[in-house]
C-alpha cells in the first residue's frame, strides 16, 4: 500500500534549507516511525514551520534527502492525501461562505482526485469525521466564521483527518485557544492516535501541553539540539542552550 518497508513514514537526511540567504535548517536528520507521536519544540524562528513545509513538499531543501511514505514529497502524488495538515491558526476570511461540513469536505478533495465529484459516501465520511472528533451535530451547517476558535480548530482537524489520513501534521494547533479548548483539542488528538494508529507530528511552543501526550520530543533551533523521550529532552542541558534559557522557567 505504498508503505515504507521499515515502517518509516517520514525521513529527512542531512536536510539544509536557506530562505532569502538565511540558513533556517542546518543538517537535519529526522525519522518518524509509523504510529509515533512526535512533538517538535523550539523558540520563535527556530525553523519549526519550515521543517513541516519541507516534509509536505512546500519548501524544497537546498541539500539533503526527504522521503514521505518512501517517496520524495513532490512525487508522493496519490499518497499526499494521506497526510493531514493543520497549518498555524489561520487568519482566514471569517465571512467565507462555507459551513463546518463544507470545510471538512475540503479534506476529501485530495483523495477524490481531479474531475470527480463528491458522492454521498464522501459526505457521510465528512459527517462521521466530525462525529468522531466530538463536534456537535447541530453546528455542522453553521458558517465557519460563526464558530468559536476552539470549534474552528476542531473543524480544521476534521478536514485534516477526512482523507484516509495516516500522517497528521499539526503546526501550532492551539495558538490563541483558551486552556479548556487546548485540553479538549489535545485529548481528541490523543484519542485519534490511539483509535486510528495515526503517526502524529506536532509543532508547538506549548511544552507543558505536549509533555502529556507525545512519546518523543525534538528540540529544534536551526539544527536539532535534543531528540528523545520527553523526560530525556526536558532534562537535557541542550534544551537551555537551544532556548538561551530554561524554557520551563
Amino acid at each position: 500500500m505504498g508503505r515504507d518497508v521499515t515502517g518509516t513514514v517520514v525521513s529527512l537526511e542531512d536536510v539544509c534549507v536557506t530562505i532569502r540567504g538565511i540558513p533556517v535548517l542546518d543538517h537535519i536528520n529526522l525519522t518518524l516511525d509509523e504510529g509515533s507521536f512526535t512533538a517538535v519544540i523550539g523558540p520563535n524562528g527556530a525553523g519549526k514551520t519550515t521543517l513541516v513545509r519541507v516534509i509536505l513538499g512546500l519548501v524544497r531543501p537546498d541539500s539533503g534527502r526527504v522521503r514521505l511514505f518512501g517517496k520524495p514529497p513532490a512525487g508522493a502524488g496519490n499518497q499526499k492525501h494521506q497526510v493531514g495538515y493543520l497549518p498555524q491558526r489561520q487568519q482566514f476570511d471569517q465571512g467565507f461562505p462555507v459551513s463546518a461540513h463544507d470545510v471538512v469536505m475540503m479534506g476529501r478533495v485530495g483523495c477524490l482526485g481531479l474531475f470527480r465529484f463528491p458522492a454521498r459516501a464522501d459526505k457521510d465520511a465528512a459527517r462521521e469525521t466530525l462525529h468522531r472528533i466530538g463536534f456537535p451535530d447541530d453546528l455542522t451547517g453553521k458558517p465557519i466564521g460563526e464558530l468559536s476558535g476552539g470549534q474552528q480548530q476542531l473543524v480544521f482537524l476534521g478536514r485534516a483527518l477526512c482523507s484516509h489520513t495516516r500522517l497528521l501534521i499539526l503546526d501550532e494547533p492551539t495558538n490563541g485557544l483558551d486552556l479548556v479548548a487546548q485540553r479538549t483539542f489535545y485529548r481528541v488528538v490523543q484519542e485519534l492516535q490511539r483509535d486510528l494508529g495515526l503517526t502524529i507530528l506536532v509543532v508547538s511552543h506549548d511544552i507543558s501541553a505536549l509533555a502529556g501526550c507525545a512519546d518523543r520530543m525534538v528540540c529544534l533551533n536551526g539544527s536539532i539540539y535534543a531528540d528523545g523521550n520527553i523526560r530525556e529532552v526536558l532534562s537535557s542541558s541542550r534544551l537551555a542552550e537551544a532556548y538561551g534559557t530554561t524554557p520551563l522557567e
Partner: peptide, 22 residues
C-alpha cells in the same frame, strides 16, 4: 465545473490545498 471543489479549497486555504496535492 470541473475544478470547482479544488478552486474552492484554494480560495479558502491555499497552503493546505497545496499540501494535499492540489
Amino acid at each position: 465545473v470541473l475544478f470547482f471543489k479544488e478552486l474552492l479549497f484554494v480560495c479558502f486555504d491555499e497552503e493546505s490545498a497545496r499540501a494535499a496535492g492540489i
